[in-house]
């Protein structure tokens, strides 16, 4: 036992290979990216803040950053509204059905994003399934414009990233003691009251984890944004890509990447704070 405890103290060394790998191929590339963001131009490598000044002084780029951050928030919200009931329902199904539902939920996350987005192009077009269905039940007399609109992008992002929301919520809901909601209803609370006052607060850590994953995935979802958004709706990933490869303006693209990263991390950090506050309040 003593030998085991001593050996146990050295276990951390097993993490060294991955740590070295991350330093070499994750931290170093990000470091180089930050360094480039301070360059004047690709040729003239004097250190300046010019790229950041250009970014923060330009309403067009700031607008794109804002659109991207709010796009993520909208898609995350839609994901939550539909994903939470799905997770809640899944846990009340018999085990066989539950496995089937989880299978259905993870199927889309494992099917190629390009393929899923492509499927939506087929559905969203003016001759697409959705417009045909809406016309058939008489809700619209003219086809709705869904492709190349923000509504379309939000819808597709919410579908594409739904599993990232459902799985963490299921994980926390599964740990909630079912006796608590039984106690709540036997003390006279109705279904809605029990849901809002007992179930939701106890599952908040899962909700926050799901929101963080979905948000991070949505803002950087290059393919969905470009294919559904089309050429008129520009979001940060496409703009960075255009500046980096098309315009060959690496320093500016690097500065945009850094600002984008910081903005996304700030949102993730805020969501984390919410999660921690929730855990503190109900622990």
């Amino acid at each position: 036992m003593a030998a085991r405890a001593a050996a146990g103290g050295r276990e951390w060394r097993l993490a060294l290979p991955l740590a070295a790998f991350f330093l070499a191929f994750f931290v170093a590339p990000l470091g180089v990216l930050v360094a480039w963001s301070f360059y004047d131009s690709a040729e003239l490598r004097a250190l300046t803040l010019a790229q950041y000044a250009r970014f923060l002084g330009d309403r067009f780029t700031l607008g794109i950053l804002w659109d991207t951050l709010t796009l993520g928030a909208k898609a995350t919200l839609v994901c939550l509204v539909f994903g939470y009931p799905l997770a809640w329902l899944a846990l009340r199904l018999p085990p066989r059905w539950q496995a089937a539902l989880v299978f259905l939920v993870i199927l889309p996350i494992l099917t190629s994003v390009v393929v899923r987005t492509f499927a939506w192009i087929v559905m969203l077009g003016s001759q697409g399934v959705i417009n045909q269905a809406l016309a058939a039940i008489g809700l619209v007399d003219r086809p709705l414009r869904l492709l190349y609109t923000e509504v379309g992008v939000v819808m597709v992002l919410a579908q594409v990233q739904m599993p990232l929301m459902v799985l963490p919520i299921m994980a926390t809901l599964a740990r909630v003691d079912p006796n608590l909601s039984d106690a709540s209803s036997s003390l006279g609370a109705g279904a809605w009251r029990t849901f809002w006052k007992v179930t939701v607060p106890l599952s908040l850590p899962g909700v926050v984890a799901g929101c963080i994953l979905v948000y991070a995935a949505c803002v950087t979802a290059f393919v969905t944004q470009t294919l559904i958004g089309g050429a008129r709706l520009i979001y940060m990933p496409l703009y960075i890509y255009q500046q980096a490869t098309g315009a060959n303006n690496w320093p500016f693209a690097a500065a945009m990447s850094v600002v984008f990263m910081i903005a996304v991390l700030a949102v993730v950090y805020l969501l984390n704070l919410v999660g921690r506050a929730a855990r503190g309040a109900y622990a």
Partner: peptide, 27 residues
């Protein structure tokens, strides 16, 4: 209350499930 809660959960989940499967099937 129980009825309205059940209906809300049921409808939202049904839409979510249709939402998840439809694109792949149609493709």
């Amino acid at each position: 209350e129980a009825l309205s809660f059940g209906v809300a959960i049921g409808v939202l989940s049904a839409v979510a499930i249709a939402f998840l499967i439809a694109p792949t099937l149609i493709l």
